[in-house]
Design a binder for these strands. Sequence first.
DNA 1: GTGAGCATACCGACCGGTCGGTAGGGTGCC
DNA 2: GGCACCCTACCGACCGGTCGGTATGCTCAC
Lengths: 189, 189
Amino acid sequence: MPSATEQKILDTAVRLFASQGYDATSVQEIVTAAEVTKGALYHYFRAKDDLLFEIYRLLITSQSADMDRIIGLGLSAGETVREILASLVISTAERVDETAVFVRELHRLGEDSMTEFRAERRRYHETFLAVIEKGQADGEFSSLVPADTVVRIALGVVNQLPMWFRPDGQKTPGRLAGEIADFVLAGLR
Amino acid sequence: MPSATEQKILDTAVRLFASQGYDATSVQEIVTAAEVTKGALYHYFRAKDDLLFEIYRLLITSQSADMDRIIGLGLSAGETVREILASLVISTAERVDETAVFVRELHRLGEDSMTEFRAERRRYHETFLAVIEKGQADGEFSSLVPADTVVRIALGVVNQLPMWFRPDGQKTPGRLAGEIADFVLAGLR
DNA sequence: GTGAGCATACCGACCGGTCGGTAGGGTGCC
DNA sequence: GGCACCCTACCGACCGGTCGGTATGCTCAC
């Protein structure tokens, strides 16, 4: 369980990274905004990179858990796809800053973290892929478009979401999630 | 018409920005890789930011021209959407580096450049939107999913393309473009 | 000669990270 | 009860190094 200070540092870092970018945000800027000192930051984190990695870890862990839970429900392919997309869109909308940082600064990860991350994402990707392929094999989905392209399209929207989604807009995350799921499922019929 | 030196600087900058990020690439690194000197770079560009802006300008100009040309053909809504998407996917696949930089480093643009950029992108977005709305009004497309969400999904994939598309993969840009267009049009029926 | 097209040497700002130190609360021996 | 001891959490001045940018001057085509 992270201390209040640690949590404040992470939250502030996410906010600043999202609005200015990782490199353009100095460590001094983070600690000033978080109302702590450099000593505190380096007490909890070994390096600036650790902040990034921690942000990613929290995000990926939560998304993977969501998907596993949904697949465990044993719904039909169509319902599974709808639930996965809806949960992904909603959780992404709730954490636009984290997702923005994630998409933008992925390449700054060190080699080890990058390998770990790739493995986790590959797993996510392939689990989703398997759901769609099964739907196609069972005849529930059309096979017009290859499953991997469908996955790419579906996950692509979500990653781009921070670019245009506004929490104070008139379209709620739930409504948006429904629309996106509708569209993807329409394309799969 | 840019001089050979200027072009070489820009090409090198795009390549380095794409692989390492804007901030992580120093001016010295660019000029060394481009086999020119700092003097040459600052002779053609006022600041490092100018490189970014120039990359964006070239990309957006070309995309807008493509879309205008296609709309000028006076095709049906379905055919227009297919052509726009195909041309966008193919041109993006041909310039993955530029697009990667574009998506990742957009936020580093200064205020003026950002305003100019937003206006151009908004125009692009709304032109595409109008095509789909017309198709819905005419009954050629379904109105199940709002047109703006469809546009977001379609453009989202393209922006994410640099994340996974590999020019040496077995899926050619043309084939991929066809699959994406198929899927989007299937969702619109 | 004169301006475009560079080359080279250099500057000041700033950055990530370090390190000696401190404040304060828990713990156990007497 | 009280004192020695330690440990976590944090402080902030400081350092080596790098970065974007500039000042100055050379060269050669016209």
